[in-house]
Design a binder for these strands. Sequence first.
DNA 1: GTCTATACTGTGATAGAC
DNA 2: GTCTATCACAGTATAGAC
Lengths: 202, 202
Amino acid sequence: MLVIPNGDRVAVRRAATRLEILEAAWEVARSKGLVELTLRDVADRVGMRAPSLYGHFASKNAIYDAMFEQAWSDYEATIPDLEGALPSHPRTAMRVIAAHFYDFTATDLARHQLMNQSVIAGFAPSAEAYAPSVRVLERAHRTIVALTGARTEDVEVWVALVGGLINQHHANDAGGSRHRVLLDRGVDMWADAVGLPPDDQQ
Amino acid sequence: MLVIPNGDRVAVRRAATRLEILEAAWEVARSKGLVELTLRDVADRVGMRAPSLYGHFASKNAIYDAMFEQAWSDYEATIPDLEGALPSHPRTAMRVIAAHFYDFTATDLARHQLMNQSVIAGFAPSAEAYAPSVRVLERAHRTIVALTGARTEDVEVWVALVGGLINQHHANDAGGSRHRVLLDRGVDMWADAVGLPPDDQQ
DNA sequence: GTCTATACTGTGATAGAC
DNA sequence: GTCTATCACAGTATAGAC
């Protein structure tokens, strides 16, 4: 019979509670807004009082920090599937990559605000929480260069373009699909400028 | 001798006080942050107590509202000079227009956050405050179409691109000039895709 | 008519009892 | 570990001083 040391049992339970709190925080953020989230709301949802959360997180910003890391880690976890099924044609592949990130971030305002904007007053992600987003961007950069031969400068323009279209979506068209059309058009413009050959669809 | 009716005198003084409060609010926003601005800070700077501000603005968000309108009106006021001195070559002109907006908004974080992002919790600009920004965008749209013959869709991509680069500037490079280079590159890409002829510089 | 004093509510955070 | 009690500070409503 397996003997679990007492310390591990405690650690496992603590980690589970942390996850439960984070899940509640996401629900609150999605229902009443990321900025409007309060510790009392989160505590209610896990059946605690607000001060008890401080036994698991050092501050409200520490909760945001963990959510930030979680969001980018979740996205990172989707990349292998994406890259495994990438079309061979570079232009089509760039469309797919853009749409993949767009879909992940345009469907969830709270997640988008946390990942891509600085909407929370005194909050900036810690170095550890920032790490997954850095990995994602570096990996995207390598993939795009390998795929298209674009220069670093042009990859940064591509990132700004995709980000700008997602912002526009949330500002003007939240819920609509109009900006998906603009996204394809924007990627095509970029592909033209970088010199990618046309593909079959269109 | 000019006789000023009493009602006008009062109205003039009230308008002056409003402007004084707004100016103080901008100073606070620039020094300690747009979101971190408090009514007590603003009141201190104009020599009042916080509740007294309610004699001039209905709420804190009403102050943000007036600041929003002011920022876009100020930008609108710079357009005639810009368009009067626009280079005849379409590609160069698009570079100048982009740089003009970029410079206005990239040099002042508080103003950028208020004009282009939704960083304030419960605040959305009123219809009246929104009007100048709508006028600016519509005028830019007409100017760009007249200049380049671009389709509406492509103009929207251009707007998203410029906005995305400004966001990147504030997120990664605040104070630096690296994104000015990317801006020119981005505009060039767009110009290529829209079919503008090359210009002399470059 | 303009500002102040006071107070109410809700927030994040801390201290100490159990 | 979680609770209760409490704090400091925010926006804001109201009543009254001058």
